[in-house]
Design a protein around this nucleic acid. Structure first.
Length: 284
DNA sequence: TCGCAGGTGGTCG
DNA sequence: CGACCACCTGCG
């Protein structure tokens, strides 16, 4: 058991359920179990020194199945704990009552620093799909083709399958994962990554089969520290239309608005808005 | 039965 | 270019 003390602006519900990740599961006690760095862990928070539990009070983060050293070297960075979200939130909420409300809703959101290949696969699968099925597809892909990553709390975990492993498969091999037409995207992308390596630019991502503007922005934001990236999906489109008055189908105008008003933190703003608008739905 | 779900690629005009 | 539209699959 490891502990990271005195953390502000972090809430597991907000961070793990704001749509950026698909392999974390909420437990009965409000903690989350998931896997990264090839290691399943459970993460929960307890009140910090202050003892109360107002949103602005610091908490201690408990990480089960990790050493204290792993917590400091891996998980602190994964959870983006060294960034000053308080300052970013103030900046975003200034003269923006919509954003102020959204931030009050998801005050504990942090942008995870996820594995790039996992993020590519995840958001290839996410297109034209719903969240429960996305999670099922990824789970199935790992179970069928990923390396065992150990047992935890009575459940066997598996890593995300490597590009090399997937590149050697056929669409028939992937059929049990029920990926639909995305199976071809995954195979072609895996083969391109095997041939060319995994690139680190927006243009590279866009060159992958099945990666368009939205998915590329998700990959940049969730795994490459590009916090200005502003993925425009149907939900964000809805917010930008209903709450900011931008024409429903004008993606470019939404992107421009984000660049102008949210600047270097467009992606963080996107997560507050996404979490805010989706809360009203309660579909998943 | 049919539309829809965190889009993309292909095909028109 | 910009505006359609098909697309696997499973659920309501």
């Amino acid at each position: 058991m490891a502990i990271i003390r005195n953390v502000q602006d972090f809430h597991p519900d907000h961070t793990f359920d704001c749509g950026q990740c698909f392999r974390w599961t909420r437990e009965e006690d409000g903690s989350y179990t998931g896997i990264a760095f090839g290691r399943p862990v459970n993460i929960r928070v307890i009140p910090g020194k202050a003892g109360s539990d107002r949103p602005e009070d610091p908490v201690d983060i408990l990480i089960e199945n990790a050493t204290q050293e792993e917590a400091e070297t891996l998980w602190r960075s994964y959870l983006d704990l060294d960034r000053d979200y308080g300052r970013i939130k103030n900046q975003l909420a200034t003269e923006d009552p919509v954003m102020e409300r959204a931030i009050r809703h998801g005050y504990g959101i942090r942008i995870l620093n996820q594995d790039r290949w996992e993020t590519i696969l995840s958001f290839l699968i996410s297109q034209n799909n719903n969240i429960p099925r996305i999670r099922g597809c990824i789970e199935s892909l790992c179970r069928h083709f990923g390396e065992p990553a150990g047992e935890y709390r009575g459940k066997q975990y598996y890593d995300i399958p490597t590009p090399e492993r997937l590149a050697a498969l056929s669409v028939e091999d992937l059929a049990p994962c029920r990926l639909g037409y995305r199976a071809r995207y995954i195979l072609e992308t895996a083969r391109q990554v095997r041939e060319q390596g995994i690139g680190d630019t927006s243009d590279y991502l866009r060159s992958l089969c099945g990666v368009g503007e939205k998915v590329a922005n998700c990959i940049l934001l969730f795994s490459m520290n590009r916090l200005e990236s502003f993925p425009v999906d149907v939900w964000v489109r809805r917010v930008m239309h209903e709450l900011y008055g931008i024409p429903e189908k004008d993606t470019a105008a939404m992107t421009d608005y984000a660049a102008k008003h949210f600047g270097p933190y467009g992606g963080i703003a996107q997560q507050y808005l996404f979490y805010y608008i989706r809360e009203g739905q309660e579909t998943c």
